[in-house]
Design a protein around this nucleic acid. Structure first.
Lengths: 192, 192
DNA sequence: CAAGTTTATGACCATACGGTCAACAATACA
DNA sequence: TGTATTGTTGACCGTATGGTCATAAACTTG
């Protein structure tokens, strides 16, 4: 190594991610990224590559932070009911606080870039699978049948993504709560 | 009136809509629209207005055709179970056939921040409400409690939108079927 | 046919876009 | 200290973008 980097890579990617999260891929300009990261264009290209590569890095960062946080939550303490309720409550919370319009970068990427970018599509598929598995494992604890747990988890991911769309589309917040409540109805009753 | 239009407005809007549906707002260029519509830029601007106006017109057209088709289906013959199953089966079908990546223009518009133009947002909210009401009415026939029907409809819209995200994100098709099946579980059993 | 009105055409424009590069700076190592 | 290597800088580039406009064409009406 010769001259050392003058920036913190995690911090830079975090800021890039937030821009993409907020504005989407196409609407984000290199100038936006330059401004948000504090780096200059040349450094950005030198360190990460072109715009597509920046987006992919941002998406991976989203996986390793935001999605992982949900997965950790599912792997942690509590009943499956509590965990799933919390998944949806997080949507309600971020919507109330106006964070990224209540949206989710993973969903945004699915609709904007998954079709046109195979690397993005693969990243998305992997992340969805990881999330689904975490939910499934949390359900399995209370639900004997393994197939049932898998399809229930798939269903919950669907409903979760749907609330992200509704939130950003400006639908009434009550629809998210309604969705949460009906998802919980499908779980086995709490025991003990 | 003086010189008559040389194009069919419905046909032109249909072609514009398909481009936006396929590529999204930002990724669609005026040249794309010119090519798809067969009109020249000047005519497009003269007849509809700027790019945002074209998008709004496309979204309204989507509402009046694609969404209306689903609403008509819900207002038509059959049990609520059948109708809701069909809603999801349509997603599976369009995914299999590769139509617009299995996506839905209404969902795409909800997540595209750059189009956070207030008119677009209002159009989205109105359309979501219309769809929800149609589902609710179909459920009410078999479900006495009105509040219950409303929240169930909200939940089904969420799940439906979620499958649109999953489809475009390249998730396994089985997840959509799983989602459909679990939604049906929440409906009262078919009678007679 | 003449005047008036709307539509069609395509050349044109300013700008913003993603991306590059040569020069310079800061370090490691010999 | 000198050389090699990597990081930083900002000017620069070709192009594609959304949008405009003067002119010509197609009609209606008197």
């Amino acid at each position: 190594m010769a001259r050392p980097r003058e920036f913190d890579e995690h911090q830079v990617i975090e800021s890039l991610m937030k821009i993409f999260w907020d504005k989407g891929y196409e609407a984000t300009t290199m100038q936006d990224l330059v401004k948000a990261s504090g780096l200059l264009k040349g450094s950005l290209y030198g360190a990460f590559g072109d715009k597509q590569a920046l987006y992919l890095a941002a998406l991976k960062h989203y996986d390793r932070t935001r999605i992982q946080a949900e997965i950790d939550m599912f792997n942690g303490e509590g009943s499956a009911r509590q965990k799933i309720a919390r998944l949806f409550d997080n949507v309600i919370e971020s919507t109330k606080r106006g964070l990224f319009g209540g949206g989710c970068l993973l969903c945004n990427a699915s609709l904007e870039k998954a079709v046109s970018d195979k690397q993005v599509k693969n990243e998305i598929k992997t992340t969805i699978r990881r999330l689904k598995v975490a939910i499934m494992d949390a359900i399995k604890v209370e639900q004997v049948n393994e197939d049932q747990a898998g399809s229930l988890a798939a269903f919950i991911v669907s409903a979760y993504f749907g609330t992200r769309v509704l939130a950003k589309g400006g639908a009434p917040a009550a629809m998210i709560g309604d969705t949460r409540d009906h998802c919980l109805q499908l779980l086995p009753r709490a025991r003990a």
